[in-house]
């Protein structure tokens, strides 16, 4: 699975970082950076919690093979 961020919605609150710090990090300017876009082994539950925990609903999980560029 890979993580997709809607930067139009994300306000850099960082809840995702506290739940899955290997994947998400908010930088000094308050912008979210993905340290890696695919979900690391054994961390799916953490990343799912981050997707659910995001107050702006800016995060989404997509299957790796999804070739559809819907946006």
């Amino acid at each position: 699975m890979k993580v997709v961020v809607d930067y139009g919605k994300c306000t850099g609150l960082g809840i995702c970082e506290s739940l899955a710090p290997d994947v998400f990090e908010v930088n000094d300017d308050g912008e979210l950076e993905l340290k890696q876009s695919s979900v690391p082994e054994g961390q799916l539950e953490d990343v799912e919690a981050a997707v659910e925990g995001c107050p702006t609903e800016a995060l989404r999980l997509e299957p790796d093979d999804s070739s559809a560029d819907t946006e």
């Binding site: 850099g12 960082g14 970082e17 506290s18 710090p21 930088n27």
Partner: peptide, 14 residues
């Protein structure tokens, strides 16, 4: 105004 710092501590507190 230190958004990159705060969540590192949330993890430590947990």
């Amino acid at each position: 105004n230190a958004p990159t710092e705060i969540m590192k501590y949330r993890g430590m507190i947990a």
